[in-house]
């Protein structure tokens, strides 16, 4: 009997986990490679998810449970792909741990990196204590660490940090930060009901189902103030509070506001640690480092290279449901590809 066909999945985030489950159902043998100790990717660091505020760990648990009990699926954590070579109809992969794999297809689900907010020095992340990022806040929501002020009276959210910013090398919109900011603004307002919460946005991109409802809720129920203007610089006054400067573009005048806490909505960028893998496979990518899809409408899961498939945020910022759907489509595409090969 022929052995089951191996499919290498680079990255055990939501996309990787979902695809592994589907591929196993189709009768393949998926092999997940994850550089972190735990599978799950960014989901591990998130508390609740928009728009319904489901708990992230529950979603992750469901993703993991389908994979963990499956004997066809192998997971290598704390390891990365050191070398990958194309053979005739397969790839020879050597992991950092020394494990060698022959895979008939490769699925790239390397996801994204959160933009390093300290690169926008004018916002003072890493310089002023009271400036944190969306990830820091989420981690505090999850019960880890603490926030720099005990009872903040005014809290600001800065949208588009490292997104839509040519100076940061990212022209793209990170898609999820607007709605995340609204979600986090509501959540923090629930914790500190007396605080005034501001969102400084360039454009509010509430494209998804029920996102607009969240926006309405934030305005109506929580009194969150939305100011249309990109924050240009942050300074510290003598008491150590933050002075935020922006333009209220709708009023047509510059605004200044003093904040106790400032949350930077760091966007999505290419995953830096995957550079070597992308290079070895000679994958085609855009200027910003996200991978290209060979046909974004009808064939979104392939990347011009034979036997290589892509899914999730490695081809550009995506919401979690979109990522999951892409993982499913990728499984289908791989199925189709391998069946055609056998015929």
């Amino acid at each position: 009997m022929n052995r089951k066909k191996n499919i290498l999945i680079a990255g055990a985030g939501p996309a990787g986990l979902e695809a592994a489950y589907r591929l196993s159902m189709m009768g393949f043998s998926p092999i997940l490679v994850e550089k972190e100790e735990m599978p799950g990717g960014h989901l591990n660091k998130w508390d609740r998810l928009f728009p319904e505020r489901e708990a992230a760990d529950e979603i992750l648990e469901r993703l993991l449970s389908r994979v963990k009990n499956d004997v066809n699926i192998k997971i290598f954590t704390s390891s990365y792909i050191e070398q990958i070579n194309e053979l005739n109809d397969s790839y020879n992969v050597i992991l950092s741990t020394g494990v060698t794999i022959i895979a008939e297809a490769v699925l790239i689900t390397t996801g994204f990196d959160l933009f390093n907010a300290s690169r926008k020095e004018e916002y003072g992340y890493g310089i002023y204590e009271r400036v944190i990022t969306n990830a820091d806040l989420e981690s505090w929501f999850k019960g880890n660490g603490k926030i720099p002020v005990e009872n903040p009276q005014s809290i600001g959210f800065v949208h588009c940090v490292g997104s839509r910013d040519e100076k940061a090398g990212n022209r793209h919109c990170s898609k999820v930060c607007c709605v995340t900011a609204v979600k986090q603004a509501i959540e923090i307002k629930e914790i500190f009901p007396h605080a005034t919460v501001y969102c400084f946005y360039m454009d509010l991109r509430m494209f998804g189902r029920h996102y607009e409802d969240m926006y309405l809720e934030a305005q109506q129920k929580h009194g969150i103030r939305f100011i249309r203007g990109r924050v240009s610089e942050v300074s510290e006054n003598k008491e150590g509070r933050l002075v935020v400067k922006a333009e209220d573009t709708l009023a047509g005048k510059p605004v200044k506001a003093t904040m106790d806490l400032l949350v930077l909505m760091a966007g999505m960028t290419r995953p830096a640690s995957s550079a070597s893998l992308y290079e070895q496979l000679d994958l085609s990518m855009d200027e910003d480092g996200f991978l290209r899809q060979s046909d974004a409408i009808l064939n979104g899961q392939s990347n011009h290279r034979k036997g290589i498939f892509v899914a999730g945020a490695c081809t550009g910022p995506k919401t979690l449901p979109d990522t999951i759907h892409e993982a499913d489509s990728a499984a289908m595409a791989i199925y189709e590809y391998l069946n055609r090969m056998t015929v």
């Binding site: 360039m202 203007g229 990109r230 240009s232 610089e233 400067k245 922006a246 333009e247 209220d248 573009t249």
Partner: peptide, 13 residues
């Protein structure tokens, strides 16, 4: 794209 950064950081504000 009318973000207003220029007006906000203008040194003559």
């Amino acid at each position: 794209m009318a973000c207003g950064s220029c007006a906000a950081s203008c040194s003559t504000v």
